[in-house]
Amino acid sequence: MINIVLFGKPGAGKGTQAEFLKEKYNLTHLSTGDIFRFNIKNDTDLGKLAKTYMDKGDLVPDEVTIQMLQSEVDKNPHSAGFLFDGFPRTLAQAEALDKFLESKDQNITATVALEADDNILVARLLERGKTSGRPDDQDEEKIRNRYDEYNQKTAPLMDYYKAQGKFHSVNGIGTILEVNERLNQIFDKL
């Protein structure tokens, strides 16, 4: 079983590349953003709990996020593997994911970070914001705040996975197909 963590700053192309990778490698794509939206929209117990935090402007606690993710993994027992997109975001989440996968006799196979210059990513998100309707993609200050949070909380995961020999960095600038080819070079070796 292949379990991949795909991460990078907002706008780096994770969602776009995940679509290609899940098809080619027959992986179940688990996007925390999609999982949150599904649980909230469908008024699940975990969705209601997450919404209580979000309505106050607070971050959803790790344990709630982890429970949602575990539920999705459990719903796909025959999957060839998982592509984790947007999770883990913190060291505590990475450790919890490792522990959860170990309980299923699995582990993270590799982590791949899509790297790109902040100014290029800001321009991408502002452009996306024109059509996505997402307010967080329409305000440069909010975008840069998201990058600060990424640098503080998510970037340290690189060292965590480097220590395990599972970290790969990929240049996220170029055409969709160019970036996809760079990712395939890593995935084909797993």
Score class of each variant (00 low, 15 high):
54 M>P: 09
142 K>I: 09
146 R>M: 06
21 L>P: 09
170 V>L: 08
150 Y>G: 03
140 E>N: 11
145 N>L: 10
109 T>I: 05
184 N>H: 14
48 K>M: 08
132 S>M: 04
131 T>H: 10
39 N>S: 05
16 T>V: 08
163 A>D: 06
60 V>R: 02
188 D>G: 14
150 Y>S: 01
159 D>Y: 07
117 D>F: 02
101 L>F: 00
74 D>L: 14
145 N>E: 12
140 E>K: 11
67 Q>A: 15
10 P>V: 13
143 I>C: 12
130 K>V: 05
24 K>S: 05
52 T>L: 09
82 F>D: 12
82 F>N: 06
123 A>L: 09
70 Q>C: 12
147 Y>M: 15
110 A>P: 01
26 N>Q: 12
39 N>C: 08
134 R>L: 06
146 R>C: 08
63 E>K: 13
142 K>R: 12
178 E>Q: 15
172 G>M: 14
53 Y>L: 04
92 A>C: 06
111 T>A: 13
116 A>G: 14
11 G>W: 11
104 K>I: 00
67 Q>F: 02
158 M>L: 10
3 N>K: 02
85 D>K: 09
85 D>N: 07
158 M>K: 13
115 E>H: 08
47 G>K: 08
162 K>G: 02
105 D>R: 09
60 V>T: 07
81 G>L: 01
139 D>F: 02
33 G>K: 02
10 P>M: 15
169 S>F: 03
122 V>F: 08
179 V>C: 11
157 L>V: 01
124 R>Q: 05
179 V>N: 12
187 F>L: 15
34 D>E: 11
38 F>V: 14
81 G>K: 03
119 N>H: 10
104 K>V: 00
109 T>E: 05
105 D>L: 08
31 S>Q: 03
2 I>F: 14
114 L>C: 11
98 D>H: 11
55 D>W: 10
123 A>H: 04
85 D>Q: 06
66 I>R: 07
87 F>T: 09
127 E>Q: 14
155 A>Q: 12
150 Y>A: 01
40 I>Y: 07
130 K>A: 10
148 D>C: 05
122 V>G: 14
184 N>L: 10
93 Q>Y: 06
107 N>Y: 03
64 V>A: 05
